[in-house]
Simulated assay, not measured.
Amino acid sequence: MTFARFEALHHGEEPLLLPCAWDHASAAALARAGFAAIGTTSLGVAAAAGKPDAVRATREETVALARSIAGLGVPVSVDVEDGFHRSPGEVADLVAELAGLGIAGINLEDGRGAGLAGVEAQARLIGVVKRRVPEVFLNARTDAFWLGLPGAPALAAARVRAYADAGADGVFVPGANTERDIETLVAGAGVPVNVLVQREIPLRRLAELGVARISYGSLLFRAALHAAVTTARDIAAGEPVPDGVPSYEQVEALHRYGRGDLRSP
């Protein structure tokens, strides 16, 4: 049911907007705000734990967060970096564990340091995971643009097609930020295409280009850090406390989300 609900959100009249959380409070607040689904940000999870991103350092924190937010009443997609393991079987075990918690989807990336995993090896990994856990929406990410690799448009187009053929339910191409590149990806992918929120192209135009899902990535975590430091500096400079900040009681009540009580605090 959760998988079907999440999958359907990728085929609506408008793109799925997926804000990404890094802890229970941020996820609960986003669910309370009315978003149809919630993602997680690996950067936010790693930075909040004092660890580096994308080096398989946060498997424990990622699973703990998934367990905490799986019951929010909306589908949740978890960023699992490259799967946190070398073995496809171990990656599939992780995804099965997440599915058992009630997670609807995952992001699985092909970035490996400054380069990419072999396309055939990544396609095999996707196939192993989907055969083991068919009821999780596998969003296959390619980092061809993200890493600034030569020939990124053609490289990304070939990879998203290969990943779709291997069984991916959707493809994610962070760094694709021109209309021409996005049109090419949408035309050739064969499955829903996901891009990041971006300055270059407004949401309405991304919808016109056929984008199915627009992720916030680490933006909200970075914005929260900016707001925290800015607020601290402004108050130190004699400025008043800003309007709109949630009260202590509102934030404290967020712990009820995902624990059997979905009422608004």
Rank of each mutant, 00 (worst) to 15 (best):
R5I: 09
F6H: 12
L9W: 15
P15H: 02
L17S: 09
L18M: 05
A21E: 03
D23S: 02
A27P: 10
A28S: 03
A29F: 14
A31Q: 07
R32P: 05
A33S: 11
G34H: 11
G34V: 11
G34S: 03
F35M: 03
A36R: 12
A37P: 00
A37Q: 05
A37N: 01
T41A: 01
S42N: 00
G44D: 05
V45P: 08
A47D: 10
A48M: 03
G50I: 01
D53Q: 06
A54C: 11
V55A: 08
R56E: 03
A57N: 07
T58S: 05
E60I: 02
E60F: 10
A70Y: 05
V80T: 11
E81W: 00
D82S: 14
D82G: 11
G83H: 04
H85Q: 08
R86H: 15
P88F: 07
P88A: 09
E90K: 13
V91A: 00
V91K: 12
V91H: 09
A92T: 03
V95K: 10
E97A: 08
L98A: 13
A99Q: 04
L101E: 12
L101I: 05
G102H: 03
I103E: 07
I103W: 00
A104D: 00
A104L: 06
N107D: 13
D110V: 01
R112P: 01
A117S: 14
A117Q: 15
Q122A: 02
R124N: 12
G127T: 02
R131W: 11
R132Q: 08
R132P: 09
V133D: 10
V136M: 06
L138M: 01
N139V: 02
A140T: 00
A140R: 03
T142L: 00
T142R: 00
F145N: 03
L147D: 10
L147G: 09
A154D: 14
L155C: 08
A156C: 12
A162S: 07
A166T: 05
A166W: 08
G167D: 07
A168R: 04
F172H: 05
V173S: 12
G175L: 01
T178E: 12
E179D: 13
E179P: 12
I182W: 12
A187R: 03
V191G: 01
V191A: 00
P192S: 01
P192A: 02
P192N: 10
L196S: 02
V197K: 10
Q198R: 14
L203S: 08
E208T: 08
E208L: 08
R213E: 14
R213Q: 12
Y216L: 09
Y216T: 00
Y216G: 11
G217E: 14
G217P: 04
L220T: 12
A223F: 14
A227F: 15
V229C: 12
T230Q: 02
D234S: 10
D234K: 10
A236S: 10
A237S: 05
V245R: 13
S247D: 02
Y248D: 14
Q250E: 15
A253Y: 09
L254A: 13
G260F: 06
G260V: 15
P265K: 04
